[in-house]
Design a binder for these strands. Structure first.
Length: 193
DNA sequence: CAATAGATCATCT
DNA sequence: GATGATCTATTGC
């Protein structure tokens, strides 16, 4: 694989907002499938009531309070899974929802897993689509993203990207907080920009 | 095009 | 028992 180094634990051990912005342009890899991250959202601790961690530690939210650089995968709407990456030092809640990637490897595999996607731009242009395309399920909940089959790497060809900031999608609480980050001009981001 | 309904279940009240 | 960090197909302009 012609990608750069795996991001280290320290990358994730920072405020969720910083991690969310800096993940744009990095490469999400699961097995043979890989994609450039083009859209993320930050979910914070404190008074961010939109975050799953806002009501404290439960069986489901446990990993959000755990060490950074791990995956938080949850099941939503009876049908879809969403991938988050835990940020902040251990003990502090905070994570980054990965909403969309630009497919760069294992594209045929992803297309097989997403027959409904007619165009490359629709393969992983949303949190539910992304997990389907990449084959990510709750089996990956708690997985360490600095080792194993699910990792994030530096891109082979790092490019500087411009970032658009918008409110987060699909939430009721804190619906106007500017915590969604999108690679400007990307055709692979979700549509509700 | 935009708007809407339906699918479907883990989690928390 | 209600709700939700969604997606797709379908309907109606």
């Amino acid at each position: 694989m012609a990608f750069g180094k795996i991001l280290k634990r320290e990358f994730y051990e920072r405020p969720a907002v910083d991690v969310a912005k800096d993940l744009l342009g990095k490469v999400l890899i699961h097995g043979a499938a890989a994609g450039l991250i083009v859209e993320t959202e930050a979910y914070l601790g404190g008074d961010d009531l939109a975050a799953h961690s806002a009501r404290g530690i439960t069986n489901r939210t446990r990993v959000i309070f755990g060490p950074p650089g791990h995956a938080y995968v949850y099941f939503i709407y009876g049908m879809y899974e969403c991938l988050n990456i835990v940020a902040e030092p251990e003990g502090q809640p905070g994570c980054v929802l990965v909403r969309a990637v630009e497919p760069v490897a294992g594209i045929e595999l992803m297309q097989r897993r997403r027959p409904a996607a007619r165009r490359l731009e629709d393969l992983a242009s949303g949190p539910g689509k992304l997990t389907l395309a990449m084959g990510i399920t709750r089996a990956q909940n708690g997985a360490d993203l600095t080792r194993g089959t699910l990792v994030v790497r530096e891109p082979a060809d790092p490019r500087r990207v411009e970032i658009d900031v918008t409110p987060r999608i699909g939430i009721r609480e804190c619906a106007d907080w500017p915590l969604r980050f999108v690679v400007r001009g990307s055709r692979f981001a979700s549509k509700a920009t």
